[in-house]
Design a protein around this nucleic acid. Structure first.
Lengths: 125, 125
DNA sequence: ATTGTTGCAAAAATTTTGCATTATC
DNA sequence: GATAATGCAAAATTTTTGCAACAAT
């Protein structure tokens, strides 16, 4: 069986992603690891995030200010993106929708759903 | 009173966006106008799309293969993004969610909601 | 040894911007 | 003529990639 998180850098990248709730960008992950691991390159962070997404252990959340933001939490939930500060918050929401049923009836394979609210967060108000 | 769609190019860009249901990228809009208007630059398309988004007459839909995709239809509805071909479909869905009420109760200003389904469309199956 | 992983820098790709020119009123 | 809009090309940004070096088994 293929072992996941083979290398120590890969593991470190994954751990950073999972131990924050800020829904980081690749650059944020890089910056946060750079202190502990000066020998880390941004390309490696990108390569590993790509891999994690293929494996399904990291999910795309939103693109904010041109940067892709990701989430290490993979259970179904929604997000709130602040239009002022760019912070992304988790929002509990697992309501199945009638629209999904309709899509399936129309012959679409629905693999995932993304629900994102946009507005101004409590800190920025 | 300030007049919208001041210039003829601006109007043409807006019309192309509104008369397709493909949820185009800036490049697609540019390519589709280029035949009729050889004197059109991609920068102008980007500048006008930015303006339309500020005005609220065009909405961001999703980022597919690194390209931002937009919609000239601004009434509340959801989307389906095909992971194979990148096509984006409109999906009727205006169910208000309990999550939105919860957000407001928590002191967030919810300005908009984006619901996007991902999977494989009927044409690609 | 062989396969997987990384650093580095270059390249690719999308989007933004500065400035001179053109269009609109 | 004054203001707004555009073309063009350069610049800025994010993301990807090639390749040699390194790590792991």
């Amino acid at each position: 069986m293929r072992r996941l998180n083979f290398s120590s850098k890969r593991l470190a990248i994954y751990n950073v992603i999972c131990s924050t709730d800020c829904h980081p960008s690749a650059r944020w992950v890089y910056d946060n690891l750079k202190d502990d691991r000066p020998d880390l390159s941004l390309g490696t962070v990108y390569r590993n995030i790509s891999l994690f997404k293929e494996q399904g252990i990291v999910k795309y959340v939103a693109t904010v200010d041109g940067e892709e933001r990701i989430d290490g939490r993979t259970d179904p939930h929604a997000h709130f993106v602040c239009n002022r500060c760019g912070r992304i918050y988790d929002v509990e929401d697992n309501e199945p929708t009638a629209a999904e049923t309709a899509l399936i009836g129309d012959g679409f394979n629905v693999e995932s759903k993304s629900v994102t609210y946009y507005g101004v967060c409590d800190k920025c108000k």
